[in-house]
């Protein structure tokens, strides 16, 4: 049983995001890249499956800034093999192109199951798990938060809206978009990481892709915050007082303001 995990480095949206000159990309000059948080969950779930069922875990990432460190970290966390894929599509390849580039390598490797994060918020051309599943013509399901092996198949729990969930049995090979791992992300010690710090990865796979997405990005914009929020100024005590008064005025809290 071989489990592949597709890992993506994306701009860290918790920091400042500036729009680059030309208006069609974020300014990557000073940006921090981080592992897509759902891909992190996918890797954890793959490692958990390995420990429960004796699978081999193959980490897959596209070449580019930070790719080696990403793959080294995956090995330190417990992946058995790491593969760097050629990337003709530039930084942060769009998911649709990424699916086309990943598919032949996934087939060549003979992977039984591919996990990746349920979504990434850095692009608009579809999410990787369904794009990859459709490209490979493998069954796929997204928003999954629990996977177990079951006699040549997997049983997954798919989280739906409103606290509902669906349990499905999915035949292998399959692609799964992971929402959350079955357990918290494991800690990797510096000592463990240093064991893999010298690892180098020769790029594999195709370096040709049409890049066609059928869409054209016109521009990026910073949302005007609609100006809807009335901002309460001052320190926490002042804001607490203003909020308490507001809640009483709206009959949402009892008491009289000071």
């Amino acid at each position: 049983m071989q489990i592949g995990v597709a890992l993506r480095l994306i701009p860290d949206a918790s920091g400042e995001l500036e729009i680059a000159e030309g208006g069609k990309d974020v300014d990557r000059e000073w940006i921090d890249l981080k592992l897509n948080e759902f891909d992190d969950q996918a890797l954890e779930e793959a490692l958990t499956l390995k420990e429960c069922g004796g699978a081999t875990v193959v980490a897959l990432a596209f070449e580019g800034l930070g790719a080696d460190r990403l793959l080294q970290t995956a090995l330190a966390r417990g992946a058995d093999r790491a593969i760097k894929l050629r990337n003709p599509l530039g930084d942060d390849p769009p998911a649709r192109g990424a699916a086309r580039l990943l598919a032949p390598t996934i087939r060549d490797l003979g992977l039984d199951l591919v996990l990746t994060g349920v979504l990434a918020t850095d692009g608009i051309n579809g999410q990787l798990a369904p794009l990859l599943g459709a490209t490979l013509d493998w069954p796929h399901a997204s928003a999954v938060s629990g996977i177990r092996f079951d006699a040549g198949a997997i049983v997954v729990r798919q989280e739906a809206e409103g606290g509902f969930s669906t349990t499905l049995r999915v035949g292998l090979p399959a692609v799964i978009g992971v929402q959350a791992a079955s357990r918290p992300i494991r800690y990797v010690s510096g000592t463990k990481l240093r064991q893999f710090i010298g690892e180098k990865f020769a790029p594999m796979g195709s370096d040709a892709d049409s890049g066609d997405l059928g869409t054209e990005l016109v521009r990026l914009e910073r949302p005007q915050s609609e100006g809807s929020a009335v901002m309460l100024e001052g320190d926490a005590d002042t804001v607490a007082e203003a909020l308490h008064t507001l809640l009483i005025e709206r009959r949402l809290a009892k008491g009289a303001p000071r």
Binding site: P223, S225, E226, S228, A229, V230, M231, L232, E233, G234, D235, A236, D237, V239, A240, E241, L243, H244, L246, L247, I248, A253, K254, G255, A256, R258
Partner: peptide, 27 residues
């Protein structure tokens, strides 16, 4: 803040006890 009607950027770790104290006193 794009959907909020009211907002504040103060430290939540200071705000929560301050608001809780007022609400409890109000009760």
């Amino acid at each position: 803040f794009g959907v909020a009607h009211f907002g504040a950027t103060c430290d939540l770790f200071d705000l929560l006890p301050a608001l809780g104290e007022r609400l409890e006193r109000g009760q």
